[in-house]
């Protein structure tokens, strides 16, 4: 087929744009790996787990244990998703099945607005309102608990919006069938709607988890940033992301390289979760 010359230029420039956009991820991975190499070879991968603590800039006596940060990231993520998962899904159920149309519309706008609020504002709000409240329960206030609460608040909108989309995809026939059988709302939703939307709800939870793992500013501002494995909810902690944000400014040599290692670790976790999400999404589309 004859292609006009303007079209040929167009196609090639579009291809160039796509190639650039598509290879960005590889470029990012490349740079993370490149900058991490020094950390892995000079420090040794074992020390990230076995060193007694995190004291990265003391020359030969430096210690590079990432364990406290990994523990903090895992704890805060799990805590946040345990809170935000159910609340987000139930909020979506409210919007879809409980609220009268006008209220549903208003509620959805609220959730959309919450989704658009920047993380630094969540962090600031947590710092000035939640941290003092937690301090009254148990000092110092800036703690794992405060982090979990702010994170949960942040990811509820993500979970709710995606869960809502999943609930909307439940075939109306299922609902009409359930109604015709005189099933109660509880039975209809738990026995008919949830199983039918399971994959979509899974996607919502996974994307929420991804946001929680990657979130920096909010946890940086309310968690207290002490590099110790937490023993209670009220202990101050420092997540992987916060650690990078706090130290990249002055880190050099091995220290800088180890920060890139932790960035690489975050990236790998995210890639794994993206795969999970994609499988779920494919299932949701087939269902």
């Amino acid at each position: 087929m004859k292609v006009k010359s303007t079209d040929r230029i167009l196609v090639w420039s579009l291809r160039a744009a796509s190639a650039t956009a598509g290879s960005l991820v590889l470029l990012i991975l490349c740079f993370l790996v490149l900058e991490s190499v020094e950390g892995i070879t000079r420090v040794g991968a074992g020390r990230f787990l076995n060193d007694p603590g995190w004291h990265p800039s003391q020359g030969a006596e430096s210690e590079f244990s990432l364990v406290p940060m990994i523990a903090a990231t895992i704890a805060s993520t799990i805590g946040a998703i345990l809170l935000a998962g159910p609340v987000g899904v139930l909020a979506a159920v409210f919007c879809r099945f409980y609220a009268p149309p006008k209220l549903a519309r208003a509620f959805r706008s609220i959730v959309e607005l919450l989704a658009g609020i920047p993380s630094v504002v969540y962090g600031f709000w947590g710092l000035v309102t939640l941290v003092p409240l937690v301090r009254e329960l148990a000092p110092p206030g800036a703690s794992l608990l405060a982090g979990i609460l702010v994170l949960a608040m942040m990811i509820v909108p993500t979970v709710a919006l995606l869960a809502f989309a999943a609930l909307k995809n439940v075939p109306p026939g299922h609902l009409e069938g359930a109604t015709a059988l005189g099933l109660s709302r509880w039975t209809t939703i738990v026995k008919v709607v949830f199983p039918s939307a399971a994959s979509g709800l899974g996607v919502a939870i996974v994307l929420g988890t991804m946001r929680a793992i990657g979130e920096t500013m909010a946890v940086l501002m309310v968690c207290g940033n002490i590099t110790k494995v937490p023993s209670s909810l009220f202990d101050p902690v420092r997540t992987l992301t916060a650690n990078i944000a706090l130290e990249l400014g002055y880190a050099t040599q091995e220290h800088r390289a180890v920060l890139f290692v932790s960035g690489l670790a975050l990236m790998i976790m995210i890639v794994l979760l993206v795969f999970v999400q994609e499988r779920l999404q494919r299932r949701a589309r087939l269902a």
């Binding site: 991804m210 920096t216 990078i244 993206v274």
Partner: peptide
């Protein structure tokens, strides 16, 4: 690759 890019944490973009 865009799907992965969408999930990359912002601090990693910073790095």
């Amino acid at each position: 690759s865009l799907d992965v890019l969408a999930g990359v944490p912002s601090i990693v973009f910073g790095l």
